[in-house]
């Protein structure tokens, strides 16, 4: 359940029944509801006035200019990117191992393991956040740093990789492994030459989603951050001081980056399925 499902694969469209008009209208309104806030953010990032009022009085690129000259923003972007890459990499290792074990072995307790891996994303983020905060600073006596954020992010990103890779593994006929062994390949060689190349697109797709999730995360990050700020935390801090159009510009950039990443992930998923 949950966002861990990534993008479901639609069934081939069969012959469809009548299309009641109200259903189509309701769906379009829902789409508008989903996208209205995003559109507003993008639109007002070009607004010439400082107040976000309707109608827009004029257009400008000033906010973007300001944004790109803002060293704090760049620092935050670099920091978030670093966190995202490291956290996604850890999640890839943890998630791939888990998915592989779940797919290739019969053993009891599989549902329990799935549940445990999925818990950080099913339970509210605040629980993960404060639990790790109390653990790191209270119990272990550590200082909060980039590594505490990374650990937190890797923990809730792992399930994304597990689900993506497990879905792909379950599509691979077991006989491929057997054929490889039959032709003289040791299990390690089989993994390197056969299994891994075939699940690689799924791993990449999962990794991109994990990166996206980490890049946008705030609820857990808030409790685990040291002195350095991730991009969402920086924006969060500024928001408390009032909304500025520059934040709209930053948000627009974030939306765009997310869009590109999600499309990339989608592309890799498709690629792995058509292979």
């Amino acid at each position: 359940m949950n966002i861990a499902n990534a993008i479901p694969e639609p069934m081939p469209a069969g012959p469809k029944g009548r299309k009641p008009v109200w259903l189509t209208v309701a769906s379009i309104i829902t789409f508008l509801f989903l996208y209205l806030p995003l559109v507003v953010v993008v639109l007002y990032s070009f607004s010439a006035t400082k107040v976000n009022a309707w109608p827009i009085k004029g257009y400008t690129l000033d906010w973007y200019r300001e944004l790109f000259q803002d060293e704090d923003i760049w620092d935050a972007v670099r920091f978030s990117t670093f966190i995202g890459i490291v956290a996604a990499s850890i999640a890839v290792v943890l998630g791939t191992l888990t998915a592989y074990a779940l797919d290739r072995y019969r053993f009891r307790g599989k549902p329990l393991i799935r549940f445990a891996i999925g818990m950080p994303i099913v339970l509210p983020g605040i629980v993960t956040g404060v639990a790790l905060l109390a653990f790191f600073t209270g119990v272990l006596g550590l200082n909060l740093s980039r590594w505490t954020i990374i650990i937190g992010h890797a923990t809730f990103c792992t399930v994304l990789i597990v689900n993506n890779v497990a879905a792909r593994l379950s599509q691979l006929p077991r006989s491929l492994d057997e054929a490889s062994a039959d032709l003289g390949a040791t299990p390690l060689t089989t993994f390197r030459r056969i299994t891994f190349p075939l699940i690689r697109p799924a791993i990449v797709a999962g990794a991109i989603l994990a990166f996206t999730l980490s890049f946008d995360e705030i609820v857990v990050t808030f409790f685990l951050t040291g002195r350095e700020k991730t991009l969402p935390l920086l924006i969060w801090g500024r928001l408390r001081r009032g909304i500025s159009p520059e934040i709209n510009a930053a948000a627009t950039v974030i939306i765009l980056v997310s869009l590109v990443l999600v499309l990339a992930s989608y592309w890799f998923t498709r690629k792995s399925e058509t292979n």
Partner: peptide
């Protein structure tokens, strides 16, 4: 389907704050 899923992956903070822009007194 992609369109429905996408907001899930776009920053939650951005979407929440967009509503602040929309709903504010001014």
């Amino acid at each position: 389907l992609m369109l429905v899923v996408f907001p899930l992956w776009s920053s939650y903070l951005v979407r929440a704050f967009a509503w602040k822009t929309i709903l504010g007194t001014n």
